[in-house]
């Protein structure tokens, strides 16, 4: 009984009432474009430093997700504000509004669009996951990290070296992976700029994906799992340096190259 006659009629119910839907859609399109352009212009200032391909992928994914998200957010905002402003009745309304029911076309179309977006995101994420986890380079430098309340102690078992400072030194453009464990409680080993993060579990050795630092510079490791009193003081420096600087550092920390 309902939903008959769902043909091509997109006209308005009365001739002199503006076509609200068309207006709202135009405002939405314009604002979405403006939003995307604004975001792309501002993104270099919002996105943090990236020093590896992994972290670049993460940053790039953030940009892509936001570009896709701006029209979605704008849709809700535009239709909400349009309704609240244009359809507002000043005093308490005395009569009811027209009961609208969605056309099946709208529901199917909506499901299709959201489903496609979702599928795209899943495929994107799986591809990135595959690249980082499965197709990783061989013979990485292994850095063994032990978390203890509230310090990271760092060893390079392949070189027999132990870091004498609160610092991890890495040679640029060489693959490295971090094997992390803990002596007491859960800690979270996170290097934002390299895009790696793994929990330090007591009694277990957990590994980050293999990452290749690509930009010389100074970065940080922070602890991202609440571990007690000085959790927010638990950090180390990460210095990505040239191969020769790295070699002399290893020797100075008691190791052999």
């Amino acid at each position: 009984m309902s939903s008959t006659n769902l043909g091509e009629n997109v006209g308005s119910p009365t001739p002199d009432e503006p076509n609200h839907l068309r207006r709202a859609l135009i405002i939405w399109a314009v604002l979405s474009v403006v939003g995307i352009v604004l975001f792309l212009a501002l993104s270099p200032y919002i996105l943090p430093t990236s020093a590896s391909a992994l972290s670049d992928t993460a940053n790039y994914t953030l940009v892509l997700l936001t570009v896709l998200a701006v029209p979605v957010g704008m849709f809700v905002a535009v239709f909400l504000f349009y309704s609240m402003i244009v359809f507002r009745v000043k005093e308490r309304p005395t009569e009811d509004a027209v009961p609208l029911k969605p056309r099946p076309g709208l529901q199917i179309g909506w499901m299709g669009i959201t489903g496609l977006l979702c599928l795209f995101l899943v495929i994107w994420g799986m591809v990135a996951f595959y690249q980082e986890a499965v197709a990783s380079p061989s013979a990485p430098i292994v850095v063994r990290v032990t978390g203890q309340q509230w310090l990271w102690t760092i060893e390079y078992p392949q070189y027999g070296a132990t870091s004498q400072e609160q610092a991890i030194e890495l040679p640029v453009n060489r693959p490295v992976k971090f094997d992390v464990t803990s002596k007491d409680v859960l800690h979270g080993f996170a290097i934002r700029a390299l895009g790696v993060r793994v929990d330090a579990n007591p009694g277990e050795m957990s590994s980050t994906p293999v990452v290749i630092p690509s930009v010389i510079g100074r970065y940080t490791v922070v602890c991202v799992e609440l571990c007690g009193l000085y959790h927010s003081y638990m950090w180390s420096e990460v210095d990505v340096v040239s191969q020769s600087t790295f070699d002399s550092w290893i020797v100075s920390q008691g190791g052999h190259v």
Binding site: F79, S83, F87, R88, V89, E95, F129
Partner: peptide
């Protein structure tokens, strides 16, 4: 990851229902 992303689909329908309820209503 797959099924977490899937939850966004029914959530989208919730938004559609709410926006559609407000659309062309007599908003007080």
């Amino acid at each position: 990851m797959l099924d977490t992303e899937l939850i966004s689909i029914p959530t989208g329908f919730f938004f559609l229902a709410l926006i559609g309820t407000l659309w062309r209503g007599k908003i007080w």
